[in-house]
């Protein structure tokens, strides 16, 4: 309860800070390199080079180094591709939007990030192997303790389909998105609610948002549950429960010239009890920080 109270305090603090910030509109969106508008039917390519890390909350899991961050998007009149999300926008007006989409669920990224299968993200999904060789995997797993991402049974990548609704105001946005596994991997879903606040001062663009995520019991059980497939210790068995995570995200960019900009990003996501109760999860939060130079082609 104390952790939840702390999270609520952070969210309230963010909202108060936002409300007191000065607001500068970008007079000419075309000249605002890091704004949220893109030309129809054209690709947006960008790459950020810098130093950063995303912590991994899993036992034995590698932190994810952030050296190169791509930004790839294409927007047609209704269809779009935006950093791995492929979708179709059914409603788009100045103050409301609604779209449906598919994307790869990123939960799997925390499991053995440096393994080759994590680079070729779809390989396990296509093969449909869970585990690839059940008997062998089980033999290996049963003989090894303590439990880490290295010795649990493989988790597969999943593909989610989703629907998202946005409500826009001058400098704020609320959106709610529902995701459901359509790959038959974890047979569940998750729900996200986001509040964004964006503003600009000359040469600088800022974005802060808070996100509340509900993850279904089946999602948590599949990725963070511990069964006899994962361990031979009954003490470590864990049946996943639905959970709520709360995150704070901040981004600042400073225009250098038409193509280059400084990019600074930081975020913290507090994990709910459903995740932190799992013996695989050893950290109660995920932190991300990145500082670098971004080039837009």
């Amino acid at each position: 309860m104390q952790a939840l109270a702390t999270r609520i305090k952070y969210v309230l603090l963010l909202l108060i800070v936002n409300a007191s910030l000065p607001v500068f509109a970008c007079e000419n969106p075309k000249n605002c390199r890091d704004n949220e508008y893109v030309e129809n039917n054209s690709w947006e390519f960008g790459v950020a080079i810098g130093a950063g890390v995303r912590t991994n909350p899993l036992s034995g899991g590698d932190d994810i180094p952030l050296v190169l961050i791509p930004d790839i998007a294409w927007y047609g009149d209704n269809a779009y591709f935006d950093n791995g999300e492929l979708g179709y926008q059914w409603v788009q007006s100045n103050d409301f939007a609604l779209e449906t989409f598919i994307e790869i669920n990123r939960e799997r990224a925390f499991f053995s990030f440096w393994h080759p299968e994590n680079i070729f993200v779809n390989s396990n999904f296509i093969e449909g192997s869970f585990p690839a060789s059940p008997q062998d995997d089980r033999q290996n797993i049963l003989s090894s303790t303590p439990i880490t991402v290295e010795n649990v049974a493989k988790r597969r990548w999943a593909v989610d389909a989703g629907i998202r609704a946005h409500k826009y105001f001058d400098h704020t946005e609320f959106n709610v998105a529902l995701f459901y596994d359509v790959s038959g991997t974890y047979d569940g879903g998750h729900l996200e609610a986001n509040y964004y606040y964006r503003w600009q001062i000359p040469k600088w663009a800022f974005s802060v948002n808070t996100r509340v995520t509900w993850k279904s019991e089946s999602l948590i059980d599949y990725y963070y549950g511990v069964s006899l497939m994962d361990t031979n210790s009954f003490d470590l068995l864990y049946s996943g429960e639905s959970t709520v995570n709360v995150g704070l995200y901040a981004k600042a960019s400073r225009t250098i010239n038409e193509n280059w900009q400084w990019l600074i990003m930081a975020s913290t996501e507090w994990l709910g009890d459903g995740m932190t109760d799992s013996p695989i999860v050893v950290e109660s939060e995920i932190n991300t920080v990145f500082v670098g130079l971004a080039y837009r082609f």
Binding site: P29, E36, E39, G46, I69, Y75, D82, N83, Q89, R106
Partner: peptide, 15 residues
Amino acid sequence: PIKKRRRINNPWSIF
């Protein structure tokens, strides 16, 4: 005028 659309996700949003 050049048609522009609001991006659905924040630029550089990786997670």
